[in-house]
Computed example of a mutant assay.
Amino acid sequence: MGILNVTPDSFSDGGEYSSFELACRHADEMVAQGAGIIDIGGESTRPGAADVDLDEELSRVISLIEYIAGHHDVWISIDTSKAEVMRQAVEAGAHLINDVRALQEPGALEMAVSLQVPVCLMHMQGQPRTMQDAPEYADVVNDIKTFFKQRIEACCTAGLKPENVLIDPGFGFGKTLSHNYELLNRLREFESLGVPLLIGLSRKSMMGNLLNRDVSSRLAGSLAGAMLAAQNGAQILRVHDVAETVDLLRVLDATANFDRL
Rank of each mutant, 00 (worst) to 15 (best):
R46W: 06
G174L: 07
D73S: 15
S192L: 09
L64M: 12
F258H: 04
A102R: 11
A92D: 06
M86R: 12
F190K: 02
N185L: 13
M30A: 14
P135T: 03
T80H: 09
V117C: 01
S81L: 04
R260F: 14
R188E: 14
Y67W: 06
H72D: 00
L261V: 01
R60E: 15
M122A: 10
V113Y: 06
T130F: 12
W75T: 09
L193M: 05
E105H: 15
S12P: 00
R218A: 11
D133P: 01
D79Y: 01
G194Q: 09
K82W: 12
L261R: 04
G221S: 00
S63T: 15
K175S: 02
N164W: 00
P135K: 01
L249R: 07
A83N: 05
S44P: 14
E84Y: 08
D253M: 00
D9C: 11
F147D: 06
D55V: 05
E191C: 12
H123T: 03
Q116K: 15
N185I: 00
T255H: 09
S205C: 08
R213L: 14
R186W: 06
N257A: 03
E21G: 09
L166V: 02
E191D: 13
A94H: 12
G48W: 08
L248I: 00
P47E: 08
M111T: 07
L223D: 06
L198E: 08
A69C: 13
S77G: 12
V165E: 12
E91H: 12
S216C: 12
H71F: 11
A83E: 09
I37F: 01
D253H: 09
A226C: 10
E21C: 04
A158C: 03
M111D: 03
I40Y: 02
A229V: 08
L160I: 15
D168P: 08
T146E: 15
R218Y: 12
F148I: 14
Q104F: 05
V74N: 05
A112L: 09
I152D: 00
N209I: 04
E163R: 11
L249V: 07
I76F: 02
G15C: 07
I236Y: 06
Y17R: 04
L115G: 01
D79K: 04
S81T: 15
S178H: 06
F171M: 11
G233E: 09
D253K: 13
T245W: 05
I167R: 03
A50C: 04
A35L: 00
G93Y: 07
A134Q: 10
F147G: 05
G107E: 05
A27Q: 12
V119R: 08
R203Q: 11
D259Q: 07
D13R: 09
C120S: 13
I167P: 10
H179K: 11
L219N: 02
E66W: 08
N257D: 04
R151A: 05
G15L: 07
G41Y: 01
V85T: 13
I152V: 02
T146M: 14
N232P: 00
L160W: 14
A92S: 14
W75F: 13
V85P: 04
V246L: 04
G233C: 07
P8H: 08
S222Q: 11
